[in-house]
Write a protein that binds this DNA or RNA. Sequence first.
RNA 1: GGUCUCGUGGCCGAGUGGCUAGGCAGCGGUCUGCAAAACCGUGUACAGCGGUUCGAAUCCGCUCGAGACCUCCA
Length: 494
Amino acid sequence: MNPSFQEQKLLIYNSLTRKKETFVPLKAPHIGMYVCGPTVYGDTHLGHARPFVTFDLVFRYLTLLGYKVRYVRNITDVGHLENDADEGEDKIAKKARVEALEPMEVVQFYTVQFHQMMDKLNVKRPSIEPHASGHIIEQIEMVKQILDKGFAYEAEGSVYFDVEKYNREHDYGVLSGRKIEDLISNTRELAGQSSKRNPFDFAIWKNAEPAHIMRWPSPWGNGFPGWHMECSAMGCKYLGDQFDIHGGGMDLLFPHHESEIAQSTIANGKAPVRYWMHNNMITINGQKMGKSLGNAMSLMDLFSGNHPLLEKAYSPMTIRFFILQAQYRSTLDFSNEALQAAEKGLKKLLTAAETLSKLTAKKDAQEQGVAKMMQSCFDAMNDDFNSPMVIAQLFDAVRLINSVQDGHSSLNQQELDQIKELFRIFVFEVLGLVSEESGAENDILDGLMQTIIQLRQEARARKDYATSDVIRDQLGALGIVLKDGKEGTSWEQK
RNA sequence: GGUCUCGUGGCCGAGUGGCUAGGCAGCGGUCUGCAAAACCGUGUACAGCGGUUCGAAUCCGCUCGAGACCUCCA
């Protein structure tokens, strides 16, 4: 009973207009969505988790609504400069020299790690995951087109985009709200930029210094593509001149996405993207987390608890839930307290999901408003993917489930089926949460536990509470919690 | 300096003009041999000042505070 997009009015906040707009795809039921992927030269960190979980949510929801989504998320393995001075070198090349590795070895290592981390977070793989290094030809072609149309110029083996000329006919600043006059007064003069006509012009092809390892031949000499080319070229190649959604972190809005619009508009004759979506940052003590700020926390650190700022390890699902508890356009502040709250909340939700599978219906039970909960979840998602509202609704359902379990309420068959559907759709398909139960599937362990529980049960029957409490305490020290319920004792690993 | 965003109860975080967001923590109760879990109840929250309005956390102005972008960054 999955819903169809024809029945839903989906609102998406468009960074271009700074408003929520009704989402109308170019060619329904097909949707093209491009999201800026990671630069694979370092550990995947908490900050990376946010856009990929966010757009995973978007991908999952659009798919649920029956759209055929082609989701493209690139791997940046060339092209980003250490700084934009001419002697700047490719980040990946630099790392490679430091570690005496082949650049592609570094790329491979961190790409694999990135995939592992995303898998742990239950982030679905995109439809296409193109590498920038595999699309050098396409990028060179696009540079040629821009040159042919007269919106770029060659200087000292590099090709620069002529922002001022572009701005005469188009608006360089549509997305970021910047004005070219402000850019003139605010752009820093950096050493080695003498070959640019204007400091705010950006490279679409860079000449490679002799020491630069990552280099490709081009009509302008050996070099590598400029910062923003890969997304323009690969977006166009796989999604066409114009596609529906482009996503990424807010920090990419300027200059990355602004420049992408300019390049693509010239090369293809039309604005590339209809809906621009930007997720906000994760902050740590109120400050943006970032490698350059020295407060980055890798996902491996989080999962292992091995970091000075961490009181304990947090599971991947806890991180996912933590991210989904905030709307994607808000900043999300990290703290141990907040993560521990998320951890407990998630456990409550998933325990209820398990309880739900064992509930039985009662004939003629009163209506409990399950249909309304379902509708509220759709309303929340339709309002710019408001996952915290979905979660709030789900907790109302949790209370209902637990109260049925306790015998304080009851559900008729229809509503029981509906609430199961609610969990299937929203907890598992849309929010993408999965149970992380460990140990329970181990037959030997479970057999042992049943034996122990039975022995303790006999002690309790004799009112030998000293013995029963010793058993419980010692298991507790091993991280096993016993819960005495009406229908016997259950156990779980903490 | 320029552009922009934000400031919600102990913590995280929804909410854009009138109706209990939610989670975590706390407090009281039910259940339990005791716990745990669950359930029930429980909070004079909207940075400050002024304005608009019958009515503002929500709109406008000012003040204070925080952050982002302007350089690679999710």
